[in-house]
Amino acid sequence: MGEMKPVKTLSGDTEFPCYIAKPNGPAKAAIIVIQEIFGVNAGIKAKCDHWAKAGYLAIAPDLFWRVNADTDLDADVPEEFQTALDLMNKFDQDQGIRDIEATIHFARNSVNGGKVGCVGYCLGGRLAFMTAARTDINASVAYYGVGIDSLLRESHAIAHDMMLHIPTTDGFVPADAQAAMHEGLDDHPKITLYDYEGLDHGFAAEFGNRRDETAASLADSRTEEFFKAHLE
């Protein structure tokens, strides 16, 4: 449904690739889909296509473009999982936020100054939190964001609504980190947290062994209602 197209960096001196899926008619708003460590793969593209079918302009920036071109990895293949971890370690998250900000500018212009939201998964969930704190994004959603407990000092800067989906047996987000997130964010007027009991990291992946259909459907329905309320 979509295709890869270039978007200018904030400095305007170069471009980076984004998967862009357009709705059939005028877009209600734009949604930026922030990748896992596996790049803009089939699952991330499918999520963009879903949002486009729902009437949004959907854009997934290839955030690893500076360290590895055209990253497209499968979480169920051990060698590719290791490659993804290696790329994450090379990735500059602060620079990634600047690329997301450039994507926000592109998206907002593309919807005639309308609203822009973001939804991120895994590393992308962490980046969604950083985006909510550091940019003018209108609404943000994080699925199993890693290391958000280390970002709580930035939560005061989150001015627009945000939702976090937290699987309670996440192998990458231990119980003490989850407890810190609840302690630091439960009273935040703009943030809603949902726990998914007994679920592991990646439960909402579009494809592969990690997906839990029931939990993914519940979380995605909450995300859809959230964006309907805050972007339309």
Results as ranks from 00 to 15, higher is better:
202 G>Q: 04
143 Y>Q: 07
25 G>C: 04
126 R>K: 12
79 E>W: 12
4 M>L: 14
159 A>I: 00
229 A>W: 01
198 G>S: 06
195 D>G: 04
57 L>W: 06
137 I>K: 09
91 F>D: 07
162 M>R: 00
12 G>I: 00
109 N>D: 12
127 L>P: 00
109 N>F: 05
101 E>H: 12
64 F>V: 09
138 N>P: 10
8 K>E: 14
11 S>L: 13
191 I>G: 09
121 Y>N: 04
114 G>A: 06
229 A>L: 11
1 M>C: 11
42 A>C: 12
221 S>Q: 11
56 Y>E: 08
176 D>T: 11
39 G>N: 03
18 C>S: 03
13 D>K: 13
127 L>I: 09
13 D>S: 13
107 A>G: 08
37 I>F: 04
27 A>F: 00
141 V>R: 07
13 D>L: 10
190 K>D: 07
1 M>S: 14
84 A>G: 15
200 D>F: 06
168 T>H: 05
188 H>M: 05
49 D>V: 00
119 V>C: 08
73 L>T: 02
14 T>F: 13
130 M>A: 12
178 Q>G: 08
47 K>C: 06
65 W>I: 08
217 S>D: 10
221 S>A: 14
182 H>E: 05
57 L>D: 09
205 A>N: 15
144 Y>H: 10
59 I>D: 01
33 V>A: 08
62 D>C: 07
28 K>F: 01
71 T>F: 02
123 L>T: 04
219 A>D: 03
148 I>Q: 11
216 A>W: 02
46 A>I: 07
187 D>M: 11
228 K>I: 10
168 T>P: 02
223 T>R: 05
103 T>N: 02
50 H>R: 14
165 H>E: 11
201 H>A: 04
125 G>W: 01
190 K>N: 12
195 D>F: 03
33 V>N: 06
123 L>Q: 07
112 N>I: 05
30 A>Y: 03
133 A>Y: 04
38 F>I: 09
137 I>W: 10
170 D>L: 03
5 K>A: 13
83 T>N: 14
228 K>G: 07
22 K>W: 06
113 G>I: 00
161 D>I: 05
81 F>W: 11
222 R>Y: 05
161 D>W: 06
151 L>S: 06
178 Q>T: 03
144 Y>F: 09
164 L>Y: 08
63 L>H: 01
106 F>R: 11
3 E>Q: 10
8 K>S: 15
56 Y>W: 10
201 H>F: 01
62 D>K: 00
108 R>E: 11
111 V>P: 09
12 G>T: 00
